[in-house]
């Protein structure tokens, strides 16, 4: 038993308590906050299990962005739920217990946790990714190599998923309705400009903003060497602007980054990513084969390809996250 086990136990206890708490509370506001806490705690577990990139993303996306969206929805709807009747809870409990039971059954034949001789560690993939990627791609962060190159096609798909969500939300919540004269004055859900006497908040957030955006850029371009990449950077960039919108009001944020610009940026990122794929095709390689980007130095081609696709990811994610926030925040109009 080393110290890590105790940290594990503490974290798992917090997780279980949070999960039970959010299942039991009927205050949806509390449940949303607990769900953010749940994500943040699970990010700590991911750090302990060496998945720093995942932890980073889970903290930014799960604890940050998702919670913002939940709160935005709660501001537009109501925050208390009904009591769950037994006719719903009993079958649900049976299904949950059965599913859990099957998984426990499955786990009895799973390889021991963290052992060195598991099929996952023994597979030739391990050696290829951990040893050969340095010569093939030359990026120290192997997660970035695998994400953007070996399995770059999955990541293209993932960027498309973000793009899909953004245009779906735009379709559902965007301002498509023709304005009528009888419409009440726009009432915005979340970000009213905070009152003038909150000067500390305004000054502090104004001071922080450049650093948040700078950090996002660092995460974007340093993803080759440390944890980070387009996804994390995109979410951080967007959250910086969301902070701005919360403190200075939605109109100020819209003046800084207009919804029309976002509507161009979301598809632009996907186009950059897919465009790299088509460029490699035209250069005579396979789809997303970055080696052909530099005829003389394949590793440099890989660097270039990864840089470009991460840029595409960063642009789409930043714009999509901000667009989601705008869509929810602006949905007071016309109600």
């Amino acid at each position: 038993m080393n110290g890590f086990v105790w940290i594990d136990i503490v974290l798992f206890t917090i997780l279980a308590a949070t999960a039970v708490g959010l299942a039991r509370t009927r205050q949806l506001f509390a449940a949303a906050m607990l769900s953010g806490l749940f994500s943040l705690t699970s990010a700590c577990i991911f750090v302990l299990q060496d998945a720093v990139d995942v932890a980073f993303t889970e903290a930014a996306v799960g604890a940050g962005m998702t919670t913002v969206l939940f709160l935005g929805t709660l501001a537009l709807t109501r925050s208390r739920e009904k009591v769950t009747p037994p006719r719903r809870s009993i079958p649900a409990a049976l299904i949950a217990i059965f599913t859990g039971g099957v998984l426990i059954y499955a786990s009895t034949d799973m390889p021991p946790f963290a052992a060195a001789d598991t099929p996952v560690q023994q597979h030739p993939l391990t050696q290829r990714f951990l040893d050969d990627s340095m010569t093939e791609i030359g990026v120290p962060n192997v997660v970035t190599s695998v994400l953007a190159s070996y399995r770059g096609y999955d990541t293209l798909g993932e960027t498309v998923v973000v793009f899909t969500a953004a245009i779906a939300v735009l379709m559902l919540l965007g301002r498509g309705r023709p304005a009528t004269s009888a419409e009440p004055k726009p009432r915005e859900a979340l970000p009213q400009p905070i009152q003038h006497d909150q000067r500390v908040l305004r000054v502090v957030s104004k001071l922080m903003l450049p650093f948040i955006l700078l950090f996002a850029l660092y995460v974007q371009f340093h993803g080759d060497y440390g944890p980070g990449g387009g996804f994390q950077a995109g979410v951080i960039f967007a959250s910086g602007l969301i902070l701005y919108a919360l403190v200075f009001g939605l109109d100020a944020a819209r003046a800084a980054v207009s919804p029309a610009a976002l509507r161009r940026m979301v598809p632009l990122g996907v186009l950059i990513y897919a465009g790299v794929g088509f460029a490699t095709l035209l250069l005579g390689g396979a789809f997303l084969d970055y080696n052909v980007l530099d005829a003389h130095d394949p590793a440099h081609g890989q660097h270039l390809g990864i840089l470009l696709v991460e840029l595409g990811v960063g642009i789409t994610v930043t714009a999509a996250m901000l667009m989601l926030f705008y869509s929810f925040a602006a949905r007071g109009v016309g109600r």
Binding site: A51, D53, V54, V61, E158
Partner: peptide, 18 residues
């Protein structure tokens, strides 16, 4: 530690938020 599960879950997290 093995990077592949990390890559897969990065994808899954993003799918989740979407």
């Amino acid at each position: 530690s093995h990077p592949l599960p990390h890559v897969l879950i990065l994808t899954a997290i993003v799918v989740g938020v979407a």
